[in-house]
Structure formats: structure tokens, C-alpha cells
Simulated assay, not measured.
Amino acid sequence: MIKIYAPASIGNVGVGFDILGAAIKPINGELLGDCITIKLSKNFQLINKGIFSNQLPTNTEQNIVWKCWSKFCKIIQKNIPVSIILEKNLPSGSGLGSSACSIVATLVAINEIFNNPLNSKELLLLMGEVEGEISGSIHYDNVAPSYLGGLQLILEDSHIISQNIPNFTTWFWIVAWPGVKLSTASARKILPKKYTKDICVKNSRYLASFIHASYTQQSNLAARCMKELIAEPYRSKLLPNFFKNKEEIKKLGAISCGISGSGPTIFAVSENIKIAKKISLWLKNNYLKNKTGFVHICYIDTKGVRKIG
């Protein structure tokens, strides 16, 4: 029996639409992500557990886990039955890479119990493919950090899909999910088909400056460059009072604030734990819509997917 954990992630990281992704872990040691427990079996079995298991489809063949197993078996041209327990600890449609967590943990667990027929690149390609079928287009900004850990730059080069770039170990990442869902597919549909040259140039400048600041460890420059011109102006309409909330969070001392992935989770960055706690409390009191919503103060998770238990 094998148990695999895959961490939550912040897609886009503000400035890098579909290009940047960061794996995160709460500073209190909680596991913010999904777990897969797997063993060989006579028939395929799937048991759903966890806080958000009630959000999963009742039809097994509509479950991401089954889709991962089915695709894997086709690739290796063997139908090997397994028994899987999915612990769904992330809400779907949250903007924290919920589907990516399930995909990464499942495919790593299946690969391991089948004696690793796929290498890491083949696994990541398959993760992106499954993610693309769910969201409407292949993108690696959640699956790559959840799989590899750290802050990932998505290259999609013929030889290299993603590479780790330096992150700021002094940064606290505060993430707040309000307790409501927002479909990734619908959040992608709201984006325009074309952008002006001015927007493209500005976005390229901010992204290049952020990457440069990351490698030269210029924290203030990196934070100032986390400006989002591709998705935030449009997706903010799906998040009530987003700009007002962003202004309040920055008044509290956040050095950056943005939408995590497609939303509705938002993130803030602080270099001071006292300020991070103030932001966390403000978000709990002002951003959460119900008791299922949550706020976590996090570090970057440098490990990515891993065996636990």
C-alpha cells in the first residue's frame, strides 16, 4: 500500500498567466492538498473521503482519479486493477489547483505501484493532458508546482516542460478561499481573445522583471512587478469588491495581492509574520462567505508531491 500527498498551488502567481505556479504549505504544518492511498486489487475500486468529498461526482467514471487510471492503463497497454482512496481536502473550483492535486497524487501513486513505467517528463505531460480536459486547455501552472514543488516557470520547451526558479524564503503567502466555487473553464471564457500591443509589452516587462528580481533576490522589485494585465481586469468582475479588498489588504502592509489561479481564492504576500496574521484575520472577517471558507498563512512548498504515512 502506498500513500501519496500533492500540495495546493497558486497558479499564475499574479504576473505569470499560465506561465508561473507556486506550491504552498501552511506554516502550521497542516496538509493543504489531496492524498491518494493505493494498492493492487482484483477490480478497480474508488473510495472518496475528506472534507470536500461531497463535491465529487457519484459516477466513478466521471471522477478524475478514474480518468487518470484509465489513461495510464492505455499508455502502458495493460489494464491493472487497483483500489484507491482519495482524500479530497481541497474544494473544487477554488483557484488552488484542486484538480491538479488529485491528478498529480493519483498519477504518481499509480506509476509507483506499477513499478514506474513512466519517467518524470512523461508523467508531467500526462498530468497536463488530464488537466487540460477538465479546464478546456492544457496548462501546467498548477500540476507542475504540485508535482515538482517550488516556484515553477512553465517553459513547454521540447525537452523541458517546467523549471524551478528561486523564490523568496522571507515571504509569507496568505491564501483565502471564500467558500464558494468558480469554474476554471468559465473563468477562462471571460478573457478576451486579443490584447493590445501596449498590454502585451507591459505584461512582458513585468514578467521579465519578476524573473530577474527572483534570480537576483530583489524582494521589493519582485513584489512591485507582480502586476496582472491578462486576467485580473476581467476575472475581478467574478470576485465581488476585489479591488476594494485588494486596497484594504495593501493598507495592512501586504507587498503584493492577486487572484490565485482562476479564483475565487485570493493571495497576499508579506515579509512580516505580524502583518501576515493581521491580513489573515482581516480576510477571515471580510472575505469568507461561509463556515467552509478558510484562510492559511503559507510558505512555498519546495518538496512537491511526496510519499507520506
Results as ranks from 00 to 15, higher is better:
residue 44 F to I: 12
residue 204 S to D: 01
residue 120 S to N: 13
residue 48 N to G: 04
residue 107 L to Y: 03
residue 13 V to G: 01
residue 277 K to C: 00
residue 16 G to E: 07
residue 275 I to G: 09
residue 237 K to A: 13
residue 266 I to Q: 02
residue 11 G to S: 06
residue 249 I to A: 11
residue 243 F to R: 02
residue 133 E to D: 14
residue 179 G to R: 02
residue 169 T to M: 06
residue 201 V to T: 10
residue 260 S to R: 08
residue 81 P to W: 04
residue 201 V to Q: 06
residue 219 S to V: 14
residue 64 I to Q: 00
residue 199 I to W: 10
residue 290 N to K: 12
residue 262 S to C: 11
residue 173 W to E: 02
residue 304 G to V: 12
residue 220 N to G: 08
residue 147 Y to L: 12
residue 212 H to Y: 14
residue 158 S to L: 04
residue 205 R to M: 15
residue 34 D to A: 01
residue 78 K to Y: 01
residue 212 H to R: 03
residue 42 K to Q: 15
residue 82 V to C: 09
residue 2 I to N: 12
residue 43 N to E: 13
residue 17 F to Q: 04
residue 243 F to A: 00
residue 116 N to L: 14
residue 203 N to Y: 01
residue 204 S to M: 15
residue 84 I to T: 10
residue 299 Y to L: 15
residue 230 I to K: 03
residue 273 I to Y: 07
residue 80 I to N: 05
residue 273 I to L: 13
residue 260 S to I: 09
residue 136 G to W: 03
residue 4 I to Y: 08
residue 222 A to F: 11
residue 149 G to A: 12
residue 3 K to T: 15
residue 17 F to C: 13
residue 95 G to Y: 01
residue 60 T to P: 15
residue 234 Y to T: 12
residue 240 P to M: 09
residue 199 I to C: 03
residue 160 I to C: 08
residue 114 F to A: 06
residue 121 K to W: 01
residue 57 P to N: 02
residue 54 N to G: 03
residue 240 P to E: 10
residue 221 L to V: 12
residue 233 P to E: 14
residue 5 Y to D: 02
residue 73 C to T: 11
residue 216 T to N: 07
residue 273 I to M: 13
residue 219 S to R: 15
residue 200 C to A: 15
residue 58 T to R: 14
residue 250 K to I: 02
residue 34 D to E: 11
residue 224 R to G: 09
residue 262 S to D: 08
residue 302 T to L: 05
residue 78 K to N: 11
residue 23 A to Y: 13
residue 245 N to A: 00
residue 289 K to P: 01
residue 239 L to I: 15
residue 135 S to R: 01
residue 72 F to G: 11
residue 282 W to R: 05
residue 9 S to E: 14
residue 308 I to G: 09
residue 216 T to P: 02
residue 177 W to P: 02
residue 166 P to A: 09
residue 113 I to W: 03
residue 1 M to K: 03
residue 239 L to F: 02
residue 51 I to C: 06
residue 252 L to E: 03
residue 99 S to L: 08
residue 175 V to A: 11
residue 274 K to G: 14
residue 290 N to T: 14
residue 137 S to W: 00
residue 4 I to D: 07
residue 145 P to V: 11
residue 301 D to H: 11
residue 118 L to S: 07
residue 204 S to Q: 00
residue 139 H to M: 10
residue 56 L to P: 07
residue 265 T to N: 03
residue 195 Y to M: 03
residue 232 E to I: 05
residue 31 L to F: 13
residue 278 K to T: 09
residue 100 A to Y: 03
residue 254 A to Q: 10
residue 133 E to Y: 02
residue 164 N to T: 15
residue 147 Y to R: 12
residue 230 I to E: 03
residue 174 I to D: 05
residue 185 A to S: 13
residue 27 I to Q: 04
residue 27 I to G: 07
residue 159 H to T: 03
residue 140 Y to P: 10
residue 288 L to Y: 01
residue 97 G to H: 04
residue 30 E to R: 14
residue 252 L to V: 09
residue 167 N to W: 12
residue 185 A to I: 07
residue 247 E to S: 13
residue 33 G to N: 07
residue 12 N to W: 05
residue 199 I to V: 15
residue 58 T to Q: 07
residue 58 T to F: 08
residue 28 N to T: 02
residue 29 G to P: 10
residue 37 T to A: 04
residue 307 K to E: 12
residue 217 Q to M: 08
residue 191 L to H: 05
residue 160 I to Y: 09
residue 223 A to P: 09
residue 185 A to L: 08
residue 148 L to A: 10
